[in-house]
Design a protein around this nucleic acid. Structure first.
Lengths: 230, 230
DNA sequence: ACCTGAACACCGTTCAAGT
DNA sequence: ACCTGAACACCGTTCAAGT
């Protein structure tokens, strides 16, 4: 009764860190399009223009958000166990990175939109690259390996077929749609048929984690073979 | 002298196709952020609101732009020669697709932002998938193959280290930057050193085409091995 | 040093109105 | 049927001004 119902968090002074942390929260909850300077300010109990005292512009906010996530990722990966087998170690590292990025679903797209590699991203790739070298990879092969992995090194692949949403789908409607497809796209229809007959899967549903690991192992195994061959 | 200098292209009536073609031109020249409803209208010599008679909203414009590009891509790929060796054929197809996407540099990012796969994208993947099947891949392996290739199937990889711009760089400044990096990021510094010593390359410069083909072959070879192993 | 009000130049989009 | 003017609800950002 004594305490007034005030605007949220009116106490703590604004700071760059607080701006970025709030931006990340906002994006985690509502996607990156929820992060506008005005909404960010509102969330912080402040006017939009105040943000510009702590941050040059929105680009810097986005850069900062990536830095927050990458710091979290680097910390997680630092705790990942070493292994005398480079493949096992790199694999584990990447899957740990993936766990972090799955908590910030907006991050991959923003990461790809950045022009310059931030120090925290460099940090990550430096660690991965070093592990290749100590495993006996030449500098050249290591370089190619990094490119071949690409965003997979960070634990994500931008899925092109943005497979089935969580909304439960009508199996009858699905089946009908598949049959409509069959004329024009026989292969895709057959694939859809097969996927929809899998245990407890709905149309378009794919096991993202399985597919990620399949692709990752394909590349790691290929690199291993190049290493053996000298 | 007789002809007046009029606003550009005032004759031809507006149409969905003309809107989309102009949007693609705009993006090719100025990037996707150059495509706003207002600028698009202006380019067409019309008011922004007129566009809404031919197109529901901006999302539909973006979908349509992808369709234009993918139609161009499908046409190019349809002319790609068949080959009894599935690997050679798929490889050639993908490199042809890549050539088209390199003419529309904005397309990959927009493609990844689309939620539903458009018919023209389905068309492409149907063709690729079918070729795997006729080569003897099981449905399951074909499915995994498509995921493993991901956007590489269309000929692009979203580069994370958005390597050296075309602006000529100061080699001395580069060298200094590298040495600054060396403390924190020994591997990246060494890699940068090596790259910068390559013939006519500047810091951060990588041969994108080579790296693309390296990664592509790594995956195709891996898939081939899985095919042999049954 | 830190925050804000008013204002600007842009967005996408609706809707009633014009031809 | 096709296009438009006026208006709305949003953006990011500047700048002079407040405490």
């Amino acid at each position: 009764m004594a305490a007034r119902t005030e605007t949220p968090t009116p106490r703590i002074p604004l700071s760059r860190d607080r701006v970025l942390a709030t931006a990340v929260e906002l994006a985690d909850e509502g996607g990156i399009e929820a992060v506008t300077m005005r909404r960010l300010a509102q969330q912080l109990g402040v006017e939009a223009m105040s943000l510009y005292y702590h941050v040059a512009n929105k680009e810097e906010v986005l850069d900062g958000m990536i830095d927050v996530v990458m710091t979290e990722l680097n910390t997680a990966v630092a705790g990942s166990p070493t292994d005398s087998d480079w493949k096992a170690e790199v694999r584990k590292r990447i899957l740990t990175a993936r766990e972090v990025l799955l908590r910030h679903r907006w991050a991959p797209a923003v990461l790809e939109s950045r022009i310059n590699m931030s120090p925290s991203v460099m940090q990550y790739f430096d660690t991965i690259g070093s592990r290749f070298l100590t495993a006996g990879f030449s500098m050249d092969l290591t370089h190619h390996a990094m490119h071949a992995l690409g965003s997979r090194a960070l634990g994500f692949t931008q899925e092109l077929f943005d497979a089935g949403d969580d909304e439960e789908s009508d199996p009858e409607a699905d089946a009908e749609m598949i049959e409509q497809m069959a004329g024009q796209f026989p292969f895709l229809a057959e694939m859809a048929r097969q996927v929809s007959h899998d245990a407890d899967s709905t149309l378009g549903w794919c096991d993202d984690q399985f597919e990620f690991e399949f692709g990752l192992d394909l590349i790691l195994d290929g690199l291993d073979r190049k290493l053996q061959d000298g």
